[in-house]
Design a protein around this nucleic acid. Structure first.
Lengths: 118, 118
DNA sequence: TAGTTTGCTACTGAATTCATAGCATAGCAG
DNA sequence: CTGCTATGCTATGAATTCAGTAGCAAACTA
């Protein structure tokens, strides 16, 4: 039913080598993966709170992503507090924060606010 | 036909705020986006070379991603040498390299090689 | 002229994602 | 106990995206 979650040491979609970076690229390159990690940075969230934080993702996909992220040991589910980042995911946090800094510079030099695309 | 590419200052899929980080998360959260940036790190590649580097992505999707990445000013197409990262994308490079380092640590502490998932 | 490579598009089917509704469980007030 | 609320999660069908194959026009080689 569900595609197996991407893990290091295993072939993933788009790369049969099993290189960890490829598994990570596959994992993070799925819809809402990055966003979930981003929203979880502030602390644990319940399933519904997380869903709200992600602008109402469909529970189907959120459930799928959480399943994958849990398999990858990036997220754990603490019955009491909800979903939280693991120690490993927390080491990824600085990189995500760096992404934000980058994005702001990027926004400054990228048209798109006033221009219309299409 | 094609969805408009995510850009900063504009609402994107999953976030209407226009925050740059959300546009970036949407852009990078599409299949092959991160991979394309990754493969382009070594230098310019022609469309077909890039396609090969990405384990034979379908040209349809590659074309779509390149279109988006060009709209976002992360990739440019130099007729002679092929597709290349822009100055802005090159500033993103250290973060991607950091991801690789992280992925290797992650692999060390994540089962998946010998275990079977499902 | 033929042969190759380039970027790119058409077409069809498979996979993923979306949106809505709903379920079972648990806590808590009355 | 009953009624209310919140939790995590699942079912369904439709929409969107992606995949896989084939093929095109232009540029370059010889």
């Amino acid at each position: 039913m569900s595609a197996k979650p991407p893990l290091p040491h295993q072939p993933v979609r788009g790369s049969a080598t099993g290189r960890p970076i490829m598994a990570l690229l596959d994992l993070l390159g799925r819809r809402w993966s990055l966003r979930v990690l981003w929203e979880l940075q502030g602390g644990p969230l319940t399933f519904r709170a997380l869903q709200t934080a992600c602008d109402g993702v469909s529970p189907t996909v959120l459930q799928q992503r959480l399943k994958e992220l849990r398999a990858a040991r990036l997220v754990i589910h603490d019955g009491g507090r909800g979903y939280a980042l693991t120690e490993a995911a927390r080491r990824l946090q600085p990189n995500l924060m760096a992404l934000q800094g980058w994005a702001e510079d990027w926004a400054r030099e990228t048209p798109g606010g006033s221009e219309e695309q299409e």
